[in-house]
Structure formats: C-alpha cells, structure tokens
Amino acid sequence: MISTITIDGKTVPFTEEQTIMDAALAAGVYIPHLCHNPEFKPHGSCKLCVVEANGRNVTSCTMPASPGMVVVNDTPELNEDRKALVQMLFVEGNHICPACEATGNCQLQAAGYYLHMQSPHFMHFYPPRRVDASHPDIFLDLNRCILCELCVRASRDIDKKSVFGISSRGIDSHLVVNSESGRLGDTSMAVTDKAAHVCPTGAILIKRKGYTVPMGKRLFDQKTLPEFHLEQQKRVEPEDGPDGG
C-alpha cells in the first residue's frame, strides 16, 4: 500500500525516507526553498520551506513525511513569513542586483520576485565582507553568500575535497576555505568541481564567463523559480546550477 500525505488538500504519495519536500517536488507541488537542492543532503537552514504539518511548524526539507500527515503550505500567512526571510537574507548581506553578474540567474532574487518582495523592509546591515580573486578561474564574493552551504556540501560530498566550510558564529558566520592562507587560490578547488556550480546567488562566479548570456535572456527571464526548482528535481544530469543558464 502506498502511503500518502496531503498538501493544501492535494493527496501526495511518498515512499519511506522521503521528506515532505521530496514528496511535494516529486508530485509537482512547489514549496519555496533556497538551501535545498535535491542532489544534496538536506540542510534546513534557510527556513523558506517551513510548512505547517499536523498543526506544527516544521522544516519540510528535513522533516520525514509520515502517513496521513496534513500539510499546509501555500497560504498568504506562510508566504508573508517567507518573504520576510528573503528580506532578512537581503539586508544581512550586500546584494546589489542591478550590478551583480548573477542577476537573472540568482535564486535569491527570483525568490524575491516570486514572493512579491517590493522592498528590503528591514534596515540594511552593510557588513564588510571579503572578496577573494586569488583563484585563476573562480571569484569568491562573500557579499552575496547566504550561508546555504550548498558549496560546502558539494565540495565535501561530491568533489570529496572539502574546500569550503563555515566558521565563526551568529551574524559573523561566514564561508571559509581549506587553506592556511585563507585564499581560495591555495586550495585544491578546480573550475570543473561541482562546488563551483551550485551557488544559488552570485557568491561563487566563474572568471571570464561574465555576461555571456545577456540580461533579458537569463534563467529567470525564461522561467519562474517554481518552474526551475521543479525541473531541477527531475533532472538526472548533475550539469546544472544557475550559472549554466
């Protein structure tokens, strides 16, 4: 017998080990998210995917589905909260969309559009953050890092290099790289690594590839964030990532 849950009234089947997010995406039901990527171990830090399951708020990308679970997802209240989270991510970093190479390919920006974000709402932090151009093929710009740890997971689990990690705590948490100098150029990172192609924003950019696709023809000029995320679930080839757009 196949087990099911309901999401906003729709019956969704799930298999053992599947999370609410897995079951939803597989059934074509969209739950907004940023740190989740079906190719990697779930993380659960951005909290955009929080849903109400059996009356309790849970993180859908890490919460296992259980038979008969009643999930509430697409409500004005939850989407308002999600918008506030996106606004928080905008103000804690330095995101200057019009001047950013990732504009149009950026999932943070796309999430802002999807959730009808009209302004950053909160006061900007303007934190001083590092830019690292020491690598011959890759730029690392921490101004745009949203701490989703996709590069950390990709480098550790797929590339088997552990080039990235998180250090410090709280609002000072930041990406660090695997070298005593602290420079990306002194790590074993290669442009062909999976970790170079998973950043949902513009924190990891490939050198000499800037603006190869003109604005207006970029990823999220062609499709919405839900369309992109639902396709991502279906794709088998690991040859994706917004910068491939």
Binding site: S45, C46, K47, L85, M88, L147, I166, S168, G170, I171
Partner: peptide
C-alpha cells in the same frame, strides 16, 4: 545565536 538558520541569525540582530 549559532547563525545556522535565517530567522534566528538575522532576527536576533
């Protein structure tokens, strides 16, 4: 705040 999740990391600030 450990800084892991958005609402606590940014919200407490």
């Amino acid at each position: 705040s450990c800084g892991f999740c958005t609402p606590c990391r940014v919200g407490t600030q």
